[in-house]
Amino acid sequence: MNVNRTTIFRLRQRLQKTNTVSDRPRSGRPRCTTQRQDRNRVRNHMNNRCLSASASSRKTRGRNNQLISANTVRRRLSTSGICARRPYIGPILTQRHRHQRTLWAQEHAA
């Protein structure tokens, strides 16, 4: 199995004591937002895909009623699979413009 014998021994001891081989919870910095707040933030960004993380962070308060950082919002959104979006900035094409572009492309294709 390409694992050291002591590793197997420790895992076996842990399984006998706790009936699981998963790691114990460790101490660490507590999260500044609750899961409910994170879900609300994701919902807001799904409704308005062009909302920036910094604008969203200015509206959000954390557990201790403090503002959260834009990086925190970005991390929470990325764990939900949402990435940054920018609104399309370019020429507004009417149906007539599209038709004329298609005709031009067909003429010059050959």
Rank of each mutant, 00 (worst) to 15 (best):
L77W: 00
S22H: 11
R29N: 09
Q13E: 14
L67F: 08
G28K: 00
R96D: 12
R43V: 07
R24S: 10
H45S: 04
Y88R: 09
D38M: 05
Q95Y: 03
S56Y: 00
S54N: 08
Q16L: 13
R96G: 05
L77I: 01
R74L: 09
I92V: 13
V73G: 02
R86G: 04
G81K: 05
A53L: 00
N48P: 05
M46H: 11
Q16S: 04
Q66E: 15
S54E: 15
T18K: 13
L15E: 11
R61L: 15
P30T: 04
L77H: 00
Q35T: 06
R12Y: 14
N4H: 15
A53P: 00
N2C: 03
R43Q: 12
R24Y: 03
Q35W: 02
F9L: 08
T33R: 06
G62T: 03
T94E: 04
V42A: 10
R29D: 09
R63T: 06
G28R: 00
I8P: 01
S80D: 14
S57V: 02
R49F: 03
R29M: 12
T20K: 09
R29T: 12
C32Y: 04
R43Y: 06
C83I: 07
Q35R: 06
R5M: 08
Q66W: 02
T6I: 07
N19E: 05
I82G: 03
R31K: 12
A84W: 01
Y88N: 02
G28P: 10
V21Y: 10
S52M: 05
I68E: 02
S52H: 07
S52D: 02
G81M: 03
N2G: 08
R41H: 03
N40D: 13
L15H: 08
V3Q: 11
C32Q: 12
S69L: 09
G28M: 01
V3I: 11
R75W: 00
R98A: 10
R49E: 13
D23K: 13
L67M: 08
T18D: 15
V73N: 01
A55H: 05
N65M: 04
N47W: 03
R86F: 04
A70T: 04
H45A: 05
C50N: 15
S52C: 07
N64P: 00
L11I: 01
S54I: 13
N44D: 14
L51M: 13
V21G: 06
Q95N: 11
L11R: 11
R49C: 06
I8T: 10
M46I: 10
C83R: 14
R24K: 07
R74T: 06
T60C: 09
P25A: 04
C50F: 15
V73C: 02
G81R: 02
R26S: 13
R61K: 12
T6V: 09
R12M: 07
R75N: 06
S27I: 04
P87Q: 12
N71G: 10
R86C: 07
L93P: 02
T79P: 00
Q35C: 07
R61F: 13
R14Q: 14
S78E: 11
A55R: 06
N40R: 05
P91E: 09
T72P: 01
L11T: 02
S69D: 09
S69F: 07
S69E: 12
T20N: 10
R76A: 14
N44A: 15
Y88D: 01
T94F: 10
G62H: 05
T33D: 00
S57E: 04
P87S: 12
